[in-house]
């Protein structure tokens, strides 16, 4: 059974159709990159997967570990193991980062019938993950994303991913707004979190993040569809030659999805 199976997915925002028949299968242990120009529907796909309001699925289905994902609330999806690293992580003023993460971890554990982590156990887990990701402990004392730089916000997302240990992680434009050092740090962090039990979907505009997170499969989205899939050389080709040649091929009907 595949971890994620998307079949003929159509979705709209208000009356505008954005996704026009997505087909995608992701297996355990794989890293998929979804690339595409702005407006091609990449982020809409991420939002539909995580269950954000404002998107209406009009056709198709999504199976997550064999279950109907679209039938689940956002928090149910999260507890089932779907994690989204946000493009724009929101600030929660006054809410301590550690407290927030502990509430999340225990909500997920509760759903799975696992024991609740007490403060001691949780701190142990958290420190372990910080060490792996080479992030300083001051992050724990801060309020969720409040006053964080762009890079800190993204690293915090990856840190949350490490602690919550999802089976499917979707990284939505995690590279946007990062300078080269932050990009490297985030990229290395994600690579450390690769495992045989976890699938990762990296949504990005540029190839550069993929220098640090090497994808098994690269997909290109245009106008709400996946128009091309290939190995990492496809990403490099897009980096070197831009999207124009592919757009041209799509227009002239030479699409090989």
């Amino acid at each position: 059974m595949s971890m994620l199976e998307i079949k003929n997915l159509h979705a709209r925002v208000e009356s505008k159709e954005i996704l026009k028949g997505i087909n995608l299968t992701v297996n355990k242990g794989e890293v998929h990159a979804i690339m595409g120009l702005n407006g091609s529907g990449k982020s809409t796909l991420a939002n539909v997967l995580s269950g954000k309001d404002d998107y209406t699925v009009t056709e198709g289905e999504i199976l997550f570990e064999g279950n109907d994902l679209l039938d689940m609330d956002p928090e149910e999806r999260a507890r089932a193991g779907v994690f989204m690293a946000f493009q724009y992580p929101v600030e929660l003023p006054g809410v301590n980062n550690t407290y927030f993460l502990k509430a999340a971890a225990n909500a997920i554990r509760k759903e799975r019938g696992e024991e609740q982590l007490d403060a001691m156990d949780f701190m142990k887990l958290v420190r372990e993950k910080l060490k792996v990701l080479e992030i300083g402990e001051d992050l724990l004392k801060r309020e969720v994303n409040v006053g964080f730089s762009g890079g800190e916000k993204k690293r915090n997302e990856i840190f949350q991913m490490a602690v919550l240990n999802p089976s499917l992680a979707i990284l939505d434009e995690t590279d946007s707004g990062l300078d080269i050092d932050a990009l490297r740090a985030v990229g290395h962090g994600v690579t450390k979190l690769r495992s045989a039990d976890r699938a990762i979907v990296v949504i990005t505009h540029y190839q550069r993040l993929l220098n640090y997170i090497e994808p098994d499969i690269v997909h290109v989205m245009m106008d709400g569809k996946i128009v091309r899939s290939g190995d990492k050389s496809l990403a490099l080709q897009l980096e070197n030659e831009g999207y124009a040649w592919l757009e041209e091929e799509v227009r002239s009907g030479l699409v090989t999805a």
Binding site: G51, P74, E75, M84, F86, L92, G94
Partner: peptide, 17 residues
Amino acid sequence: FYCNQRGISTEDAVNMI
């Protein structure tokens, strides 16, 4: 939504905020 996506229920999210 951010809280929901981390597994936290809406009610708990409001309380937390």
